[in-house]
Design a protein around this nucleic acid. Sequence first.
DNA 1: GTGAAAGCGCTAACAC
DNA 2: GTGTTAGCGCTTTCAC
Lengths: 332, 332
Amino acid sequence: MRDVAKRAGVSISTVSHVVNNSRPVSNSARQRVIQAMDELGYKPNALARSLRQQKTNSIGLIVPDSANPFFAEVARGIEDTSFDQNYSVILCNSDGNLDKQAIYTNLLIERQVAGILFVAAGVSTELVDDLHRRRVPLVIIDREIPNVSVDTVLTNHYQGGFLATQHLIDLGHLRIACISAGSELSPSAERVTGYRDALETSGIAFDQSLVVRGDFQYESGYHAAHKLLQKEAPPTAVFASNDLMAVGCISAITESGMRVPDQISVVGFDDVKLASFSNPPLTTIAQPKREIGELATEILLARIQDLDAPQRFERLETSLIVRRSTCKLKRN
Amino acid sequence: MRDVAKRAGVSISTVSHVVNNSRPVSNSARQRVIQAMDELGYKPNALARSLRQQKTNSIGLIVPDSANPFFAEVARGIEDTSFDQNYSVILCNSDGNLDKQAIYTNLLIERQVAGILFVAAGVSTELVDDLHRRRVPLVIIDREIPNVSVDTVLTNHYQGGFLATQHLIDLGHLRIACISAGSELSPSAERVTGYRDALETSGIAFDQSLVVRGDFQYESGYHAAHKLLQKEAPPTAVFASNDLMAVGCISAITESGMRVPDQISVVGFDDVKLASFSNPPLTTIAQPKREIGELATEILLARIQDLDAPQRFERLETSLIVRRSTCKLKRN
DNA sequence: GTGAAAGCGCTAACAC
DNA sequence: GTGTTAGCGCTTTCAC
């Protein structure tokens, strides 16, 4: 900038003002500055600017695994919206590991990010409090932190689980299995609760042995299905708490010589792109992934503008998408 | 830092030196500083540090679409390696759009990133030259920029295309279609060239009408398959230039009442996780996605250390993974 | 082993 | 419409 000022024969502040349009500058001066800038290939140093202004245009995004299609799609929504608003995003993969998450949080604070987006992270109350104390804006996506006032965007997992199960019940199924994930952590747990309540609402007894635990990956759905098929009375339908596990499940079922949906119906959760193209196309519960990312980003940016605005809590609705992995129970 | 110094009763530079271990400090002073630091919840400001040191610990990552599983997996390799080396990554989605790419490049330069990773971007020679002039380290992933000396990491797309096609030929297929992508841009084009050469090596005439153009997404594979099936003499095998299109293709074939692989064999490219769990499991060409990301990051970081080291060009080998979407041609 | 001071590149407040 | 100056928070040189 110094160089530009020199070459254009103006003061350094004049250059700054043409760069930022922050006050009137005579046409002649402006011309000379502009010319000098591109002769010298000048680009303003955002570090210096941010240091001076005490604000950056970066936000931190912490996800368990950016390669998981669900998170990847949410992340795209986030990145796109950020870009539109002139923010850039620093990507962090926590692998669900609390230590890694803490390290990243630290790193983001040191980098002076304007705010942080936590996706499906098991954020501890302490961490949230600490961030509060430091006045770091944050929004939590896809998970509810109990007893803490923090902006949150998530889908109605419970409703989704209910919807999925109800669909299976409507098709006449009685032995409906469930592939859960994680532990008591909210997204999966709520889906399972929805499953359970749907069952009970229809007077079908909940059978703990029909719920098997996975971890949201293809493999775990595959293994879960194997377990289920080995039972004396295998289920006639399966609700997998995400699409990847549903696909893994279908893979195992098919491999063992049975047919989906003729012999076993399968419904997933998320409505990842793949769901439309799996074989058979997957009946699933759709979450508005992009919107989640977009909305969360908007809320974060609003929070950055006004740290003291009232807390926001957005619970988005899910919807059932019927494709071809489910059908009426065929009575023998 | 000022505050910490005051509270600990030492000079500001002493604080700096205990933070960075950059020179001996007496034990008593060190203790007081450390105590003051955590009483005040002090975290060093990376912006100021970077400004002063004229170097950041951020790198920019530009991908066409971080939600595409292939890029997502490469990106994970990048993010992981960066994290290990204390770098953080700024994620940018170009959507294959040259303007957006230019905007991002600019933004990254202004943010003073230590280096830039371009994935599969149609980087123009000018852009590379400009970056060179500015002495911005960069490495190009998954695409070759002709006539330019720049660090590059990619897979042997040609070999992969050849391998895939040869496999089909070995199974007795003669009418082998190909679903390409992009235009003359290298990754897809080279795969297609491999396909063509494999055909000709075996004395099978190349038939332009059997290659149909897609765009690496599920949908395009689906539509391409439909086109292919409408032909008078449909192919008995298809080489799709990535897994998503292969899956889309299988979906269309199945939907139209035919069977994979019994009536049509399909091979993909990339060996995305999904490939193991599709129905049928997909025969495909594996690329070492994580390694690509890791290697590229290592090369970038090395380049950051030594801007004048000799250019590196890494071409990784592919391998054929035979699963269940291909089988011997059944003669009528 | 310690402190003072300059300066990274920028913006904002204050003069004129 | 323009210039001068101070200072964001840090590191580094120099002096003691």
